[in-house]
Design a protein around this nucleic acid. Structure first.
Length: 582
RNA sequence: GCGGUAGUGGUGUAGUGGCAGCACAAAGGCUUCCCAAGCCUUUAACCCGGGUUCGAGUCCCGGCUACCGCACCA
């Protein structure tokens, strides 16, 4: 895949430089540094928080406003039932056993299964009776290790005690006999739990999307790579509920059909439009393709470089067992290709699971265009006959008879032929006006923190201005924490400059004022935090009420009247410095 | 969690047992000033806890954090 033409990744120690800048300029700080810090927890400093806020706004524009999705907010604390249903309580657990000799941490269940398989013994480590997939039990696994004397596969040393490691943080809800609570490992489950209300809110129609931006938590064993793997992180997730029969017909597919994306899949590597990817079955259906295209639109808007963005299809063995197709949006950084978003077809797995756990129906009644007339054969019990004959059992017999769909020959109940007088076989005509459908879920899910790191790295650049090395963050104007800086050329002009500053602030621009030191130093400071434009009040301003507007990327300047300044800047922020009509 | 390496002002660093230096940044001032100029002044640091020692930034032990490798990442 080709790299950006105007910029490559050849800066030495880019990772370190970006992080150094991010720390120094108030984007990212290690949390609780005062007390030595904690791995996997990071603060957003003032510019970082504003940047993040704007990234989330851009996401909201595209995935909530642009899709007429329903925005909701659910608690970060979830109850036990929620994660029993989702499978996180059983599947989000690792059984860890450590080798006493070489101290390697191993997946205990894997060690046992491998050992038994190699000796042709069937392994059953699972706890029965829990909804969802197989749950390896720590007791059974421990037993197997003890009874077979299983040792470390690496060095042959003895193994320690098996212990659970659930990646969810636990807590307690309320005092006294406490109810268990868990910090959510994804925001999605809160949406699924609200499904019946959401469906009613949307007046029982499909399709509809629901979106949530919020914190999620995973107690990572060993978080690394700065903000790439966090224990507390922000997700932006949309769950789009769709009739499974309609997955290949997105109503707005035309809008995105020609969007070109970089694809890495088992069948295809290269660039293609989402339309052709769909037609060639590279992407399973239009809904996935549609959201992949929107995903690309989002990343480009916030400043991820298109040439360093790709969509990678999950291999069958890395896909969650319920998904039919899943794509990761990946950004190329100094940490390699990292996952920024996932667009998955979660099918009806989650809703079915919550149906089972809660006992409530999670289906939508989808009416036919016209009611269908169907003929059906029914067995109608004759209670006048059955009552006296079967007495107390009559009700049971009647229910049995009513349940028969295809009566053939004599009907036998409880080993005895039921007298034909006890029922009548009739053909009835019925009008059916629709089906109950459990919607499938298409889920675009974004890691906001990773995206922000990628944005920073892709924006970081060093160039030379008048022989001086300059560090510049080429941030997208959509997400820059400051849009315009205002400077008096010399301190004597500060009154006029403050006037302009207040004018622009009132006009709703994100604007910063600075009158310290020399003008060059102030420009460079704004370059480092990615401020797209700087307005300077000079001596000419006093004469004719014009100011200079300086472009971050080229350092070129144009003059603009104060009167039209706010409009000129707004236009530049949208169209770019050169394309505005002044 | 294991192994290796490291942790000194805001940032980058020097300092191998005896007064903690430098550069950049920041704040104030001078300079009539459109791209990190200069000058003066000022602020500001040994990751945490034990131990050894008359004395520890320095040596030892433990912890925390970061980077690299291993393992983990439904």
């Amino acid at each position: 895949m080709q790299l950006d033409k105007h910029k490559d990744t050849s800066i030495d120690g880019l990772k370190e430089r970006v992080l150094e800048l991010a720390k120094r300029r108030g984007f990212l700080w290690p949390s609780y540094e005062l007390y030595g810090g904690v791995a996997g927890l990071w603060d957003y400093g003032p510019f970082g928080a504003m940047l993040k806020h704007r990234v989330e706004s851009a996401w909201r524009d595209i995935f909530v406003v642009g899709e007429s999705a329903l925005p909701i907010e659910t608690p970060t604390i979830g109850v036990e039932e929620l994660f029993l249903a989702s499978g996180h309580l059983s599947n989000f657990v690792d059984l860890i056993v450590e080798c006493v000799n070489c101290h390697t941490a191993l997946r205990a269940d894997h060690v046992v299964t491998e050992y038994l398989k190699s000796r042709g013994i069937a392994a059953d480590l699972c706890d029965p009776g829990i909804a969802g997939a197989c749950v390896p039990s720590s007791e059974k696994t421990q037993q197997q290790i003890d009874s077979h004397g299983i040792t470390c596969p690496d060095c042959g040393g003895p193994l320690g005690k098996v212990h659970d490691f659930n990646l969810m943080f636990t807590t307690h809800i309320g005092p006294g006999t406490q109810r268990k609570g868990y910090l959510r490992p994804e925001t999605a489950q809160g949406i699924f739990a609200d499904f019946p209300r959401l469906l009613r809110f949307h007046r029982d129609r499909l399709p509809f999307g629901v979106a949530q931006i919020g914190k999620s938590y995973r107690n990572e064993i060993s978080p690394r790579q700065g903000v790439i793997r966090l224990r507390e992180f922000t997700q932006a997730e949309a769950e789009v509920f769709v009739d499974p029969r309609e997955k290949n017909h997105h109503p707005r597919f035309d809008e995105v059909a020609n969007v070109e994306i970089n694809i890495l899949s088992k069948d295809f590597v290269g660039t293609a439009s989402v339309k052709s990817a769909c037609e060639r079955n590279i992407i399973a259906h239009e809904y996935l393709a549609y959201y992949i295209a929107r995903c690309q639109e989002f990343f480009i808007r916030v400043g991820v470089r298109e040439s360093r963005l790709r969509f990678r299809q999950h291999l069958p063995d890395e896909m969650a067992h319920y998904a039919v197709d899943c794509w990761d949006a990946e950004g190329l950084t100094q940490h390699g290709w990292i996952e920024l978003a996932g667009i998955a077809d979660r099918t009806d797995y989650d809703l079915k699971q919550h149906e089972r756990q809660s006992g409530l129906q999670m289906a939508v009644f989808v009416p036919y265009e016209a009611p269908k007339e169907v003929e059906r054969i029914v067995v109608r019990p004759n209670m006048g006959y059955l009552g006296p004959k079967y007495k107390g059992k009559a009700k049971q017999v009647a229910a049995f008879l009513s349940g028969i769909r295809h009566p053939e020959g004599a009907i036998v109940f409880d080993g005895q032929v039921v007298d034909p007088e006890g029922y009548a076989i009739e053909t009835v005509r019925e009008s059916i006006s629709g089906d109950f459908v459990t919607p499938h879920v298409i889920e675009p899910s974004f890691g906001i923190d990773r995206s922000i790191y990628t944005i920073l790295e892709h924006a970081y650049d060093e160039d030379t201005i008048d022989g001086e090395r300059r560090v510049v963050l080429r941030l997208s104007p959509h997400i820059a924490p400051v849009e315009v800086a205002v400077f008096p050329l010399v301190k004597a002009l500060n009154e006029k400059a403050l006037e302009v500053f207040r004018l622009l602030r009132r006009a709703g621009l994100l604007v910063e004022y600075d009158d310290s030191g020399t003008i060059g130093r102030r420009y460079r400071r704004q370059d480092e935090i990615g401020t797209p434009f700087a307005v300077t009040i000079d001596h000419e301003t006093i004469e004719n009420s014009t100011v200079t507007v300086r472009d971050r990327d080229t350092t070129k300047q144009v003059r603009s009247s104060i009167e039209s300044l706010a409009d000129v800047l707004r236009e530049m922020l949208v169209r770019g410095f050169d394309k505005q009509s002044s």
